[in-house]
Design a protein around this nucleic acid. Structure first.
Lengths: 207, 207
DNA sequence: CATAGTTTTGACCATATGGTCAGAAAAATA
DNA sequence: TATTTTTCTGACCATATGGTCAAAACTATG
């Protein structure tokens, strides 16, 4: 038996089933959190039997860990692309737009992450203090340079980044609430949000 | 036996124990979510035995329901105080400050709420579409009036409110992440946040 | 103090849940 | 086709969990 843990030499079936399980697990973990999710739910969602799932993964923890480790890479991707440019305001607004698009297109990933963080990030704290902090420090320094050069208004770069995470992820994590409040106007919520946020960050950053 | 459900004629012990249980339950539910929390944990946290807890409440659901119904009132309080005034910008910034203070002083309440919403608000959806929507509609109309009167820049009042909820609650719900990124600078995070947010919303709203 | 009412608990139950295992079914290989 | 390897499953186990109950401990009051 070749466990999915060994990344080399996987058969077609191993690759396919592993994906199906992760897809189902994402749905379940995002909705109920780690402790609230059950392997039976993942089994039901994926159409596989419970023992079959445990044939591919070494347990509930392992499935969750795999999802989280994948997620972090995807999640940091938009921030990585925040590059130097002659127009910092556009650069930041483009980042906001990318991040909002991720909330729209990958709400389950956002909720998986939110569940983990709210509950104290017990299984991802190391990565937060490592990868996430390193990247954020780097980009905060870049933004600080823009401030110092007078290209944008003076602001705290860290809290600017926090506010971007908060405002964009809100549309994935709190979607039920947003829809409840907007009711019939909810359909265009992502377009409205894009316009509002672009407007707000331009006002915040432009001299 | 007089169950806590009957709000009238409670003895001193009933009032005290009920509070102790709710206090412990808030801690546990906020950390693990509804499905992840166990009555045993609440028992341990409160120093009471499990059967004793079930003597005061009709089950896990009932404890959670009680917490949620209390919470909603407290939670909407800051928004209710968003009143008419000759300086709308100050008015909104004061609301932001109040909301941020709540994240600092009542992080568990914020997380309890966040857990519920992220998981689809199964036990509070009615209240969201009722109380929350009504109040938000009312305040959005007020803000719209300020826009129309030219007292603040034209913005979408609903998404302004969403952004305030998102940015302020972020400091309670994602506190672990904020601290991980700020590391040694984390101590003053709420003061920094207050300054940043005040600055951002003034820029967004002032002509 | 005696009695009635309230509060608390240990022991217990039914179900849910994470996980195991021997062997069957299917697929790859010789 | 025969054999080896991979994939899959029903039955099962140990523990965790929500909840019950009879009786004990405690408290207030006549």
């Amino acid at each position: 038996m070749a466990r999915a843990a060994s990344t080399k030499g996987q058969t077609r079936i191993q690759r396919e089933k592993t994906e199906e399980i992760l897809e189902a697990a994402l749905e379940v973990f995002a909705t109920y959190g780690f402790r609230g999710a059950t392997i039976d739910q993942i089994a039901l969602q994926s159409g596989l039997s419970k023992p079959n799932i445990l044939y591919y993964f070494d347990g509930k923890e392992a499935i969750h860990a795999k999802l989280l480790s994948r997620l972090l890479t995807t999640w940091l991707e938009p921030l990585k692309h925040l590059g130097d440019s002659d127009n910092p305001v556009d650069e930041i607004c483009a980042y906001v737009a990318r991040k909002l698009a991720m909330s729209r297109d990958y709400p389950r990933e956002s909720r998986l992450f939110a569940n983990e963080i709210i509950q104290g990030a017990p299984r991802i704290l190391t990565e937060l203090k490592g990868q996430l902090k390193t990247l954020t420090d780097e980009k905060a320094a870049l933004i600080q340079n823009w401030c110092d050069a007078g290209l944008i208004k003076p602001i705290d770069p860290y809290h600017l980044i926090f506010s971007i995470w908060a405002t964009t992820q809100h549309y994935a994590d709190f979607d039920v609430q947003v829809c409840a409040v907007l009711s019939d106007k909810a359909d265009s919520r992502f377009d409205q949000a894009a316009a509002f946020l672009d407007n707000m960050y331009r006002a915040t950053l432009t001299h």
